[in-house]
Each structure stands twice: as structure tokens, then as C-alpha cells.
Amino acid sequence: MQDESGFFVKRESYDNFRFIFENNCSCDAGPMMSALKEVVNDNDIAFDIGANIGITSMWMSKISKQVYAFEPEAKNLSRLKHNIHINGIENVRIIEKAVTFESATVCLNLYESYGHHSLSTSHLSTPKGRVSVDAVSLSDFCRAEDINKIDLIKIDVEGFEYEVLLGAEELLATNSIKFIVFEHSPALLRKQGRDMSQVIDLLFKYGYTIYRLNHEQINRVDVARLGQEDLYAVARSH
């Protein structure tokens, strides 16, 4: 299938075709990509954390010189590689690892939906098993790759966004990450027993300004009214 960005995406029988046809977009990141197409562009380096089958990675490839796509699950990796290949994309480097607060071997919990695999043992989706995968922190990865600045990061890791950002505190403290897009899922966070403001408080700590996709700025008191949605944060120096 050709998606709304013009890329071809290999589809499987277990994909959510109802969502695709009812919403006229290739995945649940479609509204985010549409809303931010005029906000984020001309990036040197972009990270797609939780790259899944590569739809956001391919979108990033059009607006970035170099994309690093992090995905640890084998079937998703196979589809990610295939989608990058059939579209002739050459500026996406696939990193076969999860991202969390430390570099280690971790347990990835597999769920019924291929978009719900998570380091968390608790999810709204039905569990299907678990596998051991390699993980890396963003600070360790950037140090090893000599990356000093990231223009754009998308984080969709099914409730583990906070741990991803904990592993990037060195970068956050110096505002070396310009633009961060992340999923906010109240139902999932409640299921996991998490504080709804955990991620937002960490970003506020380092001086980031946070917006909804309609570009409405939010404060901590606004968290209670947020639904299932993507938010984006902008470094204070930009």
C-alpha cells in the first residue's frame, strides 16, 4: 500500500485495516506527522525510538539528513528493513536495540498487537510471550557515535518514555535534543501504575516547553485533561 507520504508499505493480514481506512492514514502516528510537517524540517539528525515497521522513520528520512531507527523486535525489524529497502531510502540506519535508561540485555514483552511490544510487563493488550533483547541508553549511544546534537526524536515505547528520557539526561541538561515527540497514554500509564506527569515533569526540569499537536502550550496542571495523544517538547534554546 502507498501511504499518505507517498511511501510504499508492505502490509500483513494482521494489520489494523479498519483504522487505516477509517482514518485515511497509515498508522496512529499519521496525525502527528501531518500536524508537525511545517514545524520540524531540515534536520541534520533524527532518532525514531520504537520504529516499529518504519513509517515514521521514512517520514523522517524526507526531512532529515540522517535517521537512526531503533527497533528490537524481530518481526517488526524484518518489515522495517523491507519497507526501507523497497522505497530506496539510504539515509536511515537501523539499530536493532531497545532504548532505555541503561545499556544492558533486557526482557521485551510481546503483546497481541505488533505495535504494543514493551519493556513493561503490564499493558492493555494481550500478552504473547517475551524475548531477551539488547538495549542502549541514548547518552551511551550518542557518546559511542560521537553525536553531540539531535534535532528530532520521536518516542513511542508503550509507557517506557520516561526511561528513554532518563537515559538521555546528559543531552537534556544541555538542551542537545531540540525537538521531542512522545506518546501520552493515560489508560496505559494508569495500568502500569505510573504518575501521569512523570515525563512532563522531567522535560520541564530541563527547560523544555511542551505543546499538544494543535500547538497549544501546556503546563503541569493541564495533564489531567489530556487524553490519548502525542505531545511535543521544544528545547528552551530554540
Rank of each mutant, 00 (worst) to 15 (best):
Y211P: 04
I20L: 00
H116W: 06
A98L: 12
I95M: 14
H85T: 14
A235L: 00
E96F: 12
N87I: 15
F21P: 03
H123V: 05
L171A: 01
F70L: 10
L203M: 02
D28C: 14
Y211D: 01
L231Q: 05
R190I: 08
D222L: 03
S26R: 11
Y114R: 09
N91D: 09
G30T: 00
R93E: 13
L108D: 08
G193W: 04
G167E: 03
V99R: 03
N219L: 10
I147T: 13
S5D: 15
D48N: 06
G30F: 02
C107S: 13
I177C: 00
I20H: 03
N24R: 14
G30H: 04
E112C: 06
A51L: 07
N16D: 13
S237Y: 08
S139Y: 04
D44V: 15
N83V: 02
H85P: 00
Y111T: 14
K154G: 08
I200K: 03
V39Y: 08
R225V: 03
S78G: 11
L231H: 00
C107I: 15
A235F: 02
H117E: 04
Y206M: 09
L108M: 15
G115P: 04
N214F: 01
L188H: 09
D44F: 09
A51E: 00
K75T: 13
S57N: 08
D3H: 02
I94N: 09
N23M: 00
S197A: 14
I84F: 06
K97V: 07
C142H: 07
S132V: 10
F70Q: 02
L119I: 11
E96P: 12
V67I: 03
Y114G: 12
E38N: 15
I153H: 01
K37I: 14
V157Q: 10
N41G: 08
R194C: 09
S57P: 07
M60Y: 10
I86D: 06
L80C: 11
S26H: 06
V164G: 02
F17T: 02
R220P: 01
E170A: 13
S113N: 12
G54K: 07
D134W: 07
T174L: 10
N52Y: 10
G50E: 02
A233N: 01
T209S: 14
I95W: 05
H123M: 11
A98M: 11
W59D: 03
R220E: 02
Q198V: 05
I45V: 04
I200W: 00
V223C: 04
E73M: 09
G6V: 00
N76A: 06
S137N: 06
D146T: 14
A144I: 11
R190Q: 11
I55Q: 15
F7R: 03
D195Y: 13
T100V: 07
V181T: 05
L108H: 06
R236F: 04
T121K: 12
Y232I: 02
